[in-house]
Design a protein around this nucleic acid. Sequence first.
RNA 1: GCCGCUGUGGCGGAACAGGCAGACGCAAGGGACUUAAAAUCCCUCGGUGGCAACACCGUACCGGUUCGAUCCCGGUCAGCGGCACCA
Length: 847
Amino acid sequence: MKYDYKKVEAKWQKIWDEEKTFHAEIDHSKPKFYGLVEFPYPSAAGLHVGHPRSYTAMDTICRKKRLEGYNVLYPMGWDAFGLPTENFAMKNHIHPEIVTKNNVARFKSQLKSLGLSFDWDREINTTDPKYYKWTQWIFLQLYKHGLAYKKETNVNYCTGCKVVLANEEVVNGVCERCGSPVVHKVKSQWMLKITEYANKLIDGLEGLDYIERVATQQKNWIGRSYGAEVNFGTTTGDTLTVYTTRCDTLFGATYMVVSPEHKLVDEWIAQGKLKNVAEVQAYREAAARKSDFERTELNKEKTGVQLDGVMGINPVNEQEIPIFISDYVLATYGTGAIMAVPAHDTRDWEFAKKFGLPIIEVVQGKDPSNLEKEAFTDVATGTLVNSGFITGLSVKDAQAKMIAWLEESGKGCAKVNYKLRDWVFSRQRYWGEPIPMVYCEKCGWQPLPEDQLPLVLPDITDFEPGENGESPLARHTDWVNTTCPCCGGPAKRETDTMPQWAGSSWYFLRYMDPHNDKELASKEALEYWSPVDWYNGGMEHTTLHLLYSRFWHKFLYDIGVVTTPEPYAKRTSHGMILGLNPHSFVNLPENEQKALVEEYGSEEAAKKHLVEKYGEMADHPVVKMSKSLGNVVNPDDVVDEYGADTMRLYEMFIGDFEKAAPWNTSSIKGCKRFLDRIWALGDKIVDGEGYRPQLVALFHRTIKKVGEDIESLKANTAIAQLMTLVNALYDNGGATRDELRTLLILMNPLAPHITEEMWEQAGFEGQIAHTQWPVYEEAKCVESTVEIAVLVNGKVRARFNVDANIEAADAIAQAKAQEAVAAAIAGKTIAKEIYVPGKLVNLAVKG
RNA sequence: GCCGCUGUGGCGGAACAGGCAGACGCAAGGGACUUAAAAUCCCUCGGUGGCAACACCGUACCGGUUCGAUCCCGGUCAGCGGCACCA
């Protein structure tokens, strides 16, 4: 009988739903396992084939863990606030709440059609006031602990859309959507002091099971560097403090640079100390006007203006050196001022060359004359020269001695700096959590009392941002006008909302206790389920979502709300699912390829033509799926044509889980065939108990390999092993009931519907979901006889079968007795004999 | 520029921890069944030479260590990702 996947899959999905098969409750008698995948943003486009890669992998792990006796929490929800929904709402004149509701319904039915074992009783939605009440509550705690503050900052303002954009919406200095130039505007914004946690966020990575590229990317993003602050004097009697990681080169400082925004420049202008005020002001204005695009331009020529009238004084030798302003020094890092050592810093070297400044060598490399060509920056090999009391030391020793001297003399101190900036937390948008703050002329900013949470979004219909990029909420004065929680006088609500990252920064906590209206989650639930045992998600979330949520969690830990210092014990990441580029030469149908080659003379010319026609991307046969290329694969279509189990299997079989992989429609057929072959085994039951002797080792090996591979995100090789097993069963005329039983359990985490159906039809007890994972015996994994390859000088000359437990000497003797081997070694001296148990004999011969 | 990763058949990819390279699957070619197609089943499938047994070459490239290297070491080239004037 043919396998009717539509009927069978619908049947089991209904059973799982009705019986709440995957509902999790606290149960202290079992070990717990909390598996987490990133909850999706429910976009209007619906599910993408990329989503199920992560979901299926974790589903497979969770299903296997349940069979192994774990109490598994595998939840799902919706990260539903955000710009695309709001834009869709504006364009189509539908309230974002309705848009969200529709999109969520679509996503949910799509996910259910894949048979993912989520506990739907714990479903959450970040736009639900019952949920965002606690997002707002966490913000208030941050505020009360001095970690939320309001500050004038530069924001990105799109001149076309007349709205403020988030950093992520600015691509190459222009608006992601309309392509208009983005300029900077100063706006007062809520900020979160993530920098206060910079150290903890780096050090906390120690001892966590994060894949390395995630950990290093986070470290680089936080960008901790160890150095020193050095106080330079000036001829005006001021102190100009610089930050440097190379205090060993202090004797080589030949000038100083301050950022255009540096405060001392304002003071010197005000005090009339500068002789070239006009020139300096012009440079500062030009720098301020520069767009992001100009700032990020590669190979930019260094520019700058000397501050005429002031000189810096080097504390180590009292030498007077000039001071410049230049935009290659950033106002936001370190002290916004540097000492320049052109001999040993590439940027300083370029600047010095351009402005004709002296270059003094203080760290000697192999070839001092090379300093005319480039700076010498190698820290590992240099020795200090021309450097007073540190001459002759290695760089490392010189730094230690210099810091000691600076601290002793009060001219500086050791200092740690970070690249990480505070988190801009305001968005001038409607579809986000309202920031629960009130402004009173008399009392200043006041937090909303906690008993007034949630502060619900007003029901409005005009979502267009105001002129000057003000939040649409600002127009709704009946909502904006309120009373001051402090003095009771008239006050105004904050009209900015939170960024999309807010709701996702703590959602994994809510899953533990999703319906609690007293606290974000009960202590009992937090203690039982924390931490998340395994969190899988995209690499694109490494530096924002993952870091933000670790920050919030660490804060909640510090104030005693949560019970573990880190939210996620383990973090892995999947590669993207890509599509074939229909414009790439190699993906064209053969006849079109031929036609093009004929038309343009050669394959090269044809490819060149395609690049001219479609842009550089035509050179890449595999690209991101996109609507414009028409290579988007809809999971619904795949489920409809092949079934959910085939879809799941293909998602797992497609390739190395951590790497990007192209979706290949014809490869899906292989997975479908495999399931059909398993289905047909149901009619090929042979007599016999347990595993037949010739299959014992294969079964034990398969149980071992499938278990291990699923657990290490190598389901592709687990499936390959299961295919091998099924092929072997066919070679042996079918399966015994016990063999079928084991096969079905092993396949169940990967293909749950077909296996439950076969289980039921074969008359096995209950459901696979309630049975146990099979055990293997290491001793039974090996065959009793093995094939030994005989190599002579690394070349295979013969093979023979022997008992697996053969002694080395016997194996070597038998190897030499092989006809082809005897011929190959005849008349030669054997220099060495190696026996690798159960595998090979290698004879090294001479002469 | 800095940091990280990757290079294996026509394709996706295997190969424990230095031990027979190419598991498993796709595509392709040949055959069986069929009025025919689909489906299914069988065979071939890294390259070169040979009717064949077989021989030689082969894991981006050059070199090293080793009885033995896709794997370890040194160098070169190519591709991908992240950060990007962070002092």
